[in-house]
Design a protein around this nucleic acid. Structure first.
Lengths: 328, 328
DNA sequence: GATCTTTGTGGAATCGATTCCACAAAGATT
DNA sequence: AATCTTTGTGGAATCGATTCCACAAAGATC
């Protein structure tokens, strides 16, 4: 491995001077600069990043903690993050918790020890213990997808999205609307979307039967199961369903089609997330585009501004776009 | 930031001894070990990884280069990689090329400078120039998804998968079979799957009309377009289609349904990749499960064995599983 | 009791960069 | 001509770990 010392010797200058050339700092005569650059070029020398980080306390690496990389939301966010970060010479150190909350804590420590310059959390978990730990991390940090007091975050407007979708269904003439949600420990997806739904129903003077509300676990099968429960247990059957994710909606649709319900005539259906497939299923699914890549980009900017001590917002709420298709 | 020196002073021993305790190396008396461990515990000290890497030339980081993280195949592979690597204390440094071949070269250098212990390439590109560069990298390396002479790799049996699927269609009575492929510069997906198809057709004495073969670009829309071309331009219309990815198949299916073809009665359809959605579309798609997560795990093992100078295979070809559903 | 091993510990060099400080030469200012 | 700035360069300390080597004490072996 070729080092700065080798370059210095070959160019007949000191390491200091080579370092100046590389980092464009301090005074270097044009002649010496040329000479050093030529040798760097010829040898293909690249400074050892560990040595540099050790000295400068900067690693140019951002740690990203996520629950899974196998669903569209986090992978879009990572794409956005990666795009923006790489523009500034940063790379991503991936920490996949596989939905294991314990690992979230472990990875926070691990990333810190690895001297990452910042951490981005694609969050599902907002328990107070975690928030407390985050506050004490003493490292630039951004959370994506959840709101949290005192934590810099990029969030979606889950509450109003749910209200808008509910209103859309009501405007289409539906009075009996069912809801497929997820656990309320997920504040954004579980709690806020449900609250938006319930508030909009109430605002329109519409009752919600207990059995119209069912819960899934983020996958397609559980959407199907939830739909089955709604159909089976409702005293009065709803005529429309709001599912909090597209996958849940697709599961519900699958159940409905297998049982010969026509969509939207017998049952209207809406999801959230603008999954790629939502356009192509039959009928195409009404959903909401959350601009996940943009969320990633914004989060990257927030992290970079923190690192470089530039001003940054404590909180960004992204807007969204309703995509109305034939499922309503 | 607390360092090994602080711990040493607090425990009244030398840095050497603290290092021995941490790394479980050399002689340390039980009494001293306890004392040092207690202080490490109390202070929450964790060694600076950069300093360690600088000295030991090991970073415990594996670089992963991939064309995109937004499709199921690479994200599954990364999940498998991450699972296996984290078991051994390794983490993943992500390098997303966004399908830009130039970036592939850049990232190879960048990852090397970052002192990663190994590189995994989730490959689309096998041009000789790249292979040459890979050989000269002088760092443990594994390629996933493509075969390449002299490069350690984990590949799928693309050729036989295509033959098997073609045979399945033939056994179902189809004689006129169309093909939706991708560019043959992608050796695995483009070239080998096409060759498997053509060879199996020929082996069965079946002719393939030129217009039955169309090309897409990995997304759903292009599958739809390809299907349209087949329908529009074929002199004799095929009765079955082999698409080299599920997304292409789903695009094709979308076109067919919009144009009132019944599947499989008017047109049978098979894909490759066992995408999550393939089970839930209507009709469920016949496809092939490639065990991408396993590929990631195997690649991780290959890399780790290389790093630790243990014996390792130069080449692993994974088996696959045909999933026959109602689309044929 | 002399000699050899095993056990236990620390001093100091090392990894490869950056950066503070000293110093000299050249140019500008009086 | 004396003094002050600007420009250019290098020596050496530093970042925080690991590891080679030296050395001493304790046990084992004869």
């Amino acid at each position: 491995m070729i080092t700065i010392k080798d370059i210095a010797e070959m160019a007949n200058v000191s390491r200091t001077t080579v370092s100046r050339v590389i980092n464009n700092s301090g005074y270097v005569s044009e002649e010496v600069r040329k000479r050093v650059e030529k040798i760097i070029e010829e040898t293909g020398y690249m400074p050892n990043v560990n040595a540099k980080s050790l000295r400068t306390k900067q690693s140019k690496v951002i740690g990203v903690i996520l629950p899974t990389i196998q669903t569209e939301t986090p992978s879009r966010v990572v794409t956005g993050l990666s795009r923006e970060l790489s523009k500034h010479g940063y790379q991503i150190l991936l920490a996949n918790t596989d939905h294991d909350v314990k690992k979230e804590y472990e990875y926070l420590d691990l990333l810190k020890v690895r001297q990452v310059d910042g951490i981005v959390l694609i969050a599902t978990n907002t328990e107070p213990k975690l928030i407390e730990k985050l506050k004490q991390m003493d490292i630039p940090l951004v959370m994506i997808g959840q709101e949290a007091e005192d934590i810099v975050h990029v969030a979606y407007d889950d509450y109003h999205v749910a209200r808008d979708l509910t209103r859309l269904l009501i405007e289409k003439g539906h009075q009996k609307i069912g809801f497929i949600g997820v656990t309320e420990t997920d504040r954004a997806v579980g709690y806020l979307r449900k609250k938006g739904f319930l508030d909009e129903m109430k605002a329109n003077g519409l009752a919600v039967e207990r059995n119209w509300i069912q819960q899934g676990i983020f996958d397609i099968d559980s959407g199907r199961d939830a739909m089955e429960k709604i159909i089976t247990y409702s005293r009065e059957r709803p005529t429309a369903i709001l599912a909090v994710t597209d996958r849940l909606a697709i599961g519900a649709m699958s159940y409905l089609k297998n049982n010969n319900y026509r969509i939207p005539e017998d049952m209207a259906l809406v999801g959230i997330g603008a999954s790629e497939i939502s356009r192509y299923i039959d009928p195409p699914l009404t959903t909401v585009d959350y601009q996940n890549e943009k969320a990633g980009e914004e989060a990257a900017k927030l992290i970079l501004n923190q690192i470089n001590s530039k001003p940054f917002k404590k909180k960004i709420v992204l807007d969204y776009r309703l995509i109305v298709r034939d499922s309503v």
